[in-house]
Amino acid sequence: MTQAATTGYQDPIENTSTGLSSRKLMMWAFLASDVMFFGTFIATYLVYRGKSLVGPYPSEILDIPVTSVSTFVLLMSSLAMVLALHYLKNGEKNKATLWILAVVVLGTVFMGFQVVEFRLFAQEGLTPRTNLFGTTFFILTGIHGAHVTIGVIWMAFLAYGSHKGTLRSDNSMDLEIAGLYWHFVDIVWIVIFTVIYLISAADGPPPGAETILH
């Protein structure tokens, strides 16, 4: 058993009242804060679900197979992340660097999917200014995409650090904290994929939309 395994996930450097790393504690508090942030956006989406007055409606525009692939990509990036942390703690530098790079690549692929999706939607006539679905969809997934982009940049720096040897098993807390952020962004997408894509995919015009418009 290596050092990492016997100390659990405590940071051996820190001597605090709780024995926990201050930075990690703060990251968890920040994630709690982010729960409320995304929670409010998702609640807004749900309040407005099925209330768009004009098309395109989710049923006309959402492409579940494509999004399933991008969801899978983000899920696998989470796996890559946890493996990278494991290898880093074990001192296997090259494997760690490779897996952090895998996170960067998978995150970039996910963002690529999102950019393509946004462009396709725009071509098909759905923008934030088209209807309520467009408004809530673009802002929510856009904010999530911003989180992913920040994470990708962060991971790129860490990959460089791991390659250069400035990120090692003794300061693996740097990667662990970034990892918490990354996993959180992933679980937000788990919720978004279910709520926006799978559950709403059949949503059409609201009952009575015709009478409202004409």
């Binding site: 659990g8 996930y9 405590q10 709780t18 024995g19 926990l20 990690k24 504690l25 968890w28 508090a29 994630l31 709690a32 804060s33 729960v35 409320m36 989470s78 796996l79 992340m81 946890v82 990892g179 918490l180 996993h183 959180f184 992933d186 679980i187 788990i190």
Partner: peptide, 24 residues
């Protein structure tokens, strides 16, 4: 699954779980 194993909450100090659970 992601929370418990990828974010290590299952193996980690309960305080982290408290933080996240309170917000949830």
């Amino acid at each position: 699954g992601v929370m418990a194993y990828f974010m290590h909450l299952r193996f980690d100090h309960l305080l982290y779980t408290y933080f996240f659970a309170s917000a949830m």
